[in-house]
């Protein structure tokens, strides 16, 4: 494929980079990324990947846009409230960069559809807000042998790390299973600084671009934790765990399954949560 004059102008700040150049830009145009979740992490990741000229972007999300999403989910704007997130996301990406081919799925990622969907893409971005799906994504990427950029956010903090299945530590190497229900805030009640989602999602996009372009050192075998209160990044070295139930020496997980979803509900105001 060859770029036309507009495309050369559009991507000129990439092409100027010796590590990218016209050759790298072509790699991006031929690459595909799958965004799992079009929310706080998926929004910045999707926008930057689209702007960068990634050729094909898949988006899966079953939700509709809620007014409370707009504080951070920058793919969605005020007139989108009530619309499916995937439709809103698809439109914004298409307006930003018509070169991108967008594929969207208004459904949940499940043990039934995960592998088939993930296999169609080069890099996966985890932008989901619950532990069972994070583990499902980790496992599916392992079975599909597809690199995964994991992300998580909570209040003032964020975490990101990359996984090259069978080569670097996976999510289960560190966290064996979801936390017991109710012990860890992972739902709406926890709150999040919107811009923190922007930081983590943008790092996820950067890592995806690096993997596609084959430049620098991937964020594998290390976890990057960000704390907005102190504005500090901390890197924690990790390594593959021989006892990992998925990628260890004696794997117990040989097919996809879903951990039980934690019921996430906000008590009506003025009442006390009973659990």
């Amino acid at each position: 494929m060859d770029f036309n004059e507009d495309q050369i102008t559009r991507y000129s700040r990439h092409i100027l980079l010796p590590e990218v150049g016209g050759k790298g830009q072509k790699k991006l145009a031929q690459a595909s990324v799958f965004l799992i979740g079009a929310g706080g992490l998926g929004s910045p990741a999707g926008l930057y990947l689209a702007a960068a000229g990634v050729g094909r972007i898949g988006i899966i999300d079953s939700d509709v846009v809620d007014l409370s999403n707009l504080q951070r989910q920058v793919l969605h704007h005020t007139p989108d409230v009530g619309r499916p997130k995937v439709r809103s996301a698809e439109e914004k990406i298409q307006v930003l960069n018509p070169d991108v081919q967008v594929e969207y799925y208004q459904e949940r990622l499940t043990a039934q559809n995960a592998l088939e969907l993930i296999k169609q893409y080069d890099v996966i971005i985890d932008g989901v807000d619950n532990f069972p799906t994070k583990f499902l994504i980790n496992d599916a990427c392992y079975f599909a042998d597809t690199p995964l950029i994991h992300g998580g956010i909570l209040r003032f903090e964020g975490r990101v790390f990359s996984i090259k299945p069978k080569q670097s530590a996976c999510y289960r190497c560190i966290f064996k299973q979801p936390p017991p229900p109710g012990l860890v805030a992972n739902c709406q009640e926890a709150g999040i600084i919107g811009a923190v989602a922007g930081i983590i999602g943008t790092i996820q996009a950067t890592e995806a671009l690096k993997l596609i372009l084959g430049i620098g050192q991937p964020l594998t075998d290390r976890i990057l934790d960000f704390d907005a209160r102190k504005t500090t990044f901390r890197e924690i070295k990790i390594k593959r765990n021989p006892n990992c139930a998925l990628c260890g020496l004696h794997p117990e997980i040989t097919e996809l399954f879903e951990h039980e979803q934690e019921i996430c509900q906000l008590p009506p105001s003025g009442t006390v949560a009973v659990s």
Partner: peptide, 28 residues
């Protein structure tokens, strides 16, 4: 990584580096 059932039997000594990695599950 120390398995949960090994926490009570894994001893700690001067100069050890310990990381407590809390769950961070949000994304949307």
């Amino acid at each position: 990584i120390i398995e949960r059932d090994q926490l009570a039997t894994t001893s700690i000594k001067e100069g050890d580096q310990v990381e407590f990695l809390f769950y961070m599950g949000g994304g949307s």
